[in-house]
Design a protein around this nucleic acid. Structure first.
Lengths: 114, 114
DNA sequence: TTGCAATATAGCCACTTAGGTATATATCCA
DNA sequence: TGGATATATACCTAAGTGGCTATATTGCAA
């Protein structure tokens, strides 16, 4: 699995996205991260391991705590992938708009298939 | 599974990302999409079904062909999610820079706790 | 040292996924 | 009608995932 694979796979779970969102407020311990969820602590630890393996978070050491913090690099790479294609999609959209305009100008309203 | 879940899950596979990339050049049939891959046609059809269920592509009909085309909406939503947090991450980076500067100016390097 | 608090690991289960092959369906063409 | 082409479906398998409980580990504090 390459970096984009693991990044998108990690982002495909709502618990993990919520954890990442929480970490934008700053470092947090496992207990703090687990608190909002109706889920056992080991399950949260497993999610954190997925995020760590994807390079999306890193862990520190503070006594018994292993605080988590965001790592932005893989997220930036995922954003770049999407952004690169978004520009092309936007181009397609403009072409689509032109096509729809042409169709509306014609008589056949059947293909509002979008 | 909500929209973001299925979108990111669909994006986590390199074959599917390559298919989406190919589709930025315009519609393509299943055979055309399968051609670059050392993979059976049914496997490609399965990937296309994943993409279709995620709303990332839609299918038409052209004789025996079922041409695929990109649907941008879910990709736009995924981009929005990443962009929203990217701004915060960038903000954190700036704050971190400031914090590191302050710490270097002081004498106690112990509390890099954010 | 004893014990508590925070976290990780192990093992279990149900479900999903990504690949394969074989076969069915659908559409065109002769 | 019959054959060829394009695609989908059914079924199999191996591996991965997400949840759980129980237990181990680690570090502090009395």
């Amino acid at each position: 699995m390459n970096q984009l694979d693991t990044t998108f796979a990690a982002l495909s779970d709502p618990t993990r996205r919520a954890i990442l969102a929480r970490l934008t407020d700053g470092e947090a311990s496992v207990m703090e991260l687990a608190e909002p969820f109706a889920m056992s602590q080991p399950s949260i630890s497993k999610h954190l391991k997925v995020l760590e393996n994807a390079g999306l978070i890193s862990r520190g050491r503070d006594a018994q705590r292993r605080p988590c913090r965001l790592e932005v690099k893989p997220l930036a790479e995922a954003t770049e992938w999407l952004e690169r294609y978004r520009k092309i999609w936007e181009g397609n959209f403009q072409r689509l708009d032109a096509l729809l305009g042409a169709l509306q100008a014609s008589k056949n309203p059947g293909e509002a298939e979008q």
